Simulated assay, not measured.
Amino acid sequence: MEYSSDTRRRATPPTAHLRVFEPLRAFSDEDQLLIGGQKDVSREQLEGAEAYESLARLTRTLSDPFPHSTHESFRVLHYPRADGLTTAYYCPSQLSTRSVLAAEQLDGSMRRQVLDLLLPEAAREANAARVDSSRFAEDVAHLHTRGATWGIPFGWFVLLHEEDHRELVEDDSDLLGVRISAPLGQALDRARYAAATLAIHAPQMDLLDELTALCEWLGLFSEDSIIELDYGRIAPLVWPDDSPHDLRMGLESLADSDMLGAAAAYRRLASRWLRVRQLARAS
């Protein structure tokens, strides 16, 4: 079945993702076989299928948002090389593991009565029985994807520059999404420099803690991996987006003790995302 239409994705909240794509050799023999078996499935088909299945889970007669299939799927990123060719990198969806982690986050953020309506005890128990405990532990220790709904954490913009490789996802004249990618080693260097700058000039900023956590996470992967910021359906709300540039200018101003310049860069950044936050509240 083809899932090329964006209709189903439009029915879900705008979500951005930060993903790590690794070279094929980084995966187990079992996963490499799965990747080989999915070589004819395009990224558009994969993401359309995920959107379809997400809506199907949310609209089940009995409340049960957990995925029932444990079959792993992989996104592929063809990253350009200096010689003009591309190299394939892969990112596992890890949907089952991410669903469990999301449920745990909800468990600590809402009242029990509401949680039981969204995630009935029977559904949680059934999902726990389906989860492969060894695979779950491995995925948690090596989680390839982070998500954010109705916004993008500012720390993610530190990892990327406006001249990095980008891909616009379009349908006729409509912008459906934007993906920006860069070598992980380069992104990690940017994050470490930004964290050091903040530690010296603005240690009270929450961004420092965010960057510290990002550095720890990225350090789990080999530096020959690729990091990708996927705006998803947030892209039409903000693109063209100068957030990476504004954040970098703010950090450079801090390093030069130019507090006026840093404040101006932050105002540009914050005002750009204010509209998105207002839309989130309106929804």
Results as ranks from 00 to 15, higher is better:
residue 145 T to A: 06
residue 248 R to W: 11
residue 212 T to N: 01
residue 126 A to G: 14
residue 111 R to N: 01
residue 268 R to W: 03
residue 140 V to L: 05
residue 170 E to C: 10
residue 210 E to N: 06
residue 244 P to L: 04
residue 170 E to Q: 14
residue 93 S to Y: 02
residue 83 D to A: 04
residue 177 G to C: 12
residue 22 E to F: 00
residue 226 I to G: 07
residue 114 V to F: 07
residue 65 P to E: 13
residue 49 A to C: 04
residue 217 W to P: 04
residue 17 H to A: 14
residue 106 L to M: 08
residue 51 A to D: 14
residue 25 R to V: 10
residue 230 D to C: 13
residue 15 T to H: 06
residue 282 A to V: 10
residue 234 I to D: 04
residue 47 E to P: 00
residue 98 R to M: 12
residue 162 E to K: 05
residue 105 Q to I: 11
residue 29 D to P: 10
residue 186 Q to L: 08
residue 171 D to M: 12
residue 205 M to E: 10
residue 95 L to F: 02
residue 269 L to K: 05
residue 165 H to S: 02
residue 62 L to C: 04
residue 221 F to Y: 15
residue 236 P to A: 11
residue 103 A to C: 01
residue 98 R to C: 03
residue 221 F to H: 09
residue 167 E to T: 12
residue 144 H to M: 08
residue 176 L to E: 13
residue 28 S to K: 06
residue 262 A to Y: 00
residue 207 L to N: 04
residue 155 G to N: 02
residue 2 E to W: 13
residue 55 L to Y: 10
residue 134 S to C: 00
residue 248 R to S: 12
residue 108 G to W: 05
residue 49 A to T: 07
residue 160 L to H: 09
residue 25 R to I: 05
residue 12 T to D: 04
residue 270 A to D: 14
residue 150 W to F: 15
residue 129 A to M: 14
residue 85 L to R: 14
residue 152 I to D: 05
residue 95 L to G: 05
residue 126 A to H: 13
residue 236 P to I: 12
residue 243 S to M: 09
residue 167 E to K: 12
residue 231 Y to H: 14
residue 196 A to L: 01
residue 118 L to E: 07
residue 220 L to T: 13
residue 42 S to G: 12
residue 82 A to T: 09
residue 186 Q to D: 00
residue 278 Q to F: 11
residue 67 P to T: 09
residue 82 A to G: 05
residue 109 S to D: 12
residue 139 D to L: 06
residue 221 F to R: 05
residue 149 T to E: 13
residue 235 A to N: 11
residue 38 Q to L: 08
residue 174 D to C: 06
residue 171 D to P: 09
residue 65 P to S: 11
residue 56 A to G: 03
residue 52 Y to G: 00
residue 40 D to Q: 13
residue 201 H to C: 00
residue 186 Q to S: 08
residue 248 R to I: 03
residue 283 S to G: 07
residue 149 T to K: 06
residue 282 A to E: 15
residue 30 E to N: 05
residue 9 R to P: 00
residue 202 A to M: 03
residue 219 G to T: 01
residue 59 T to G: 03
residue 80 P to Q: 01
residue 245 H to V: 07
residue 1 M to N: 09
residue 176 L to H: 02
residue 22 E to R: 11
residue 141 A to Y: 00
residue 168 L to Q: 08
residue 173 S to D: 15
residue 50 E to Y: 06
residue 265 A to K: 01
residue 138 E to R: 15
residue 166 R to L: 11
residue 227 I to A: 12
residue 128 A to L: 10
residue 273 W to V: 06
residue 281 R to L: 14
residue 26 A to H: 13
residue 217 W to M: 04
residue 281 R to K: 03
residue 283 S to F: 02
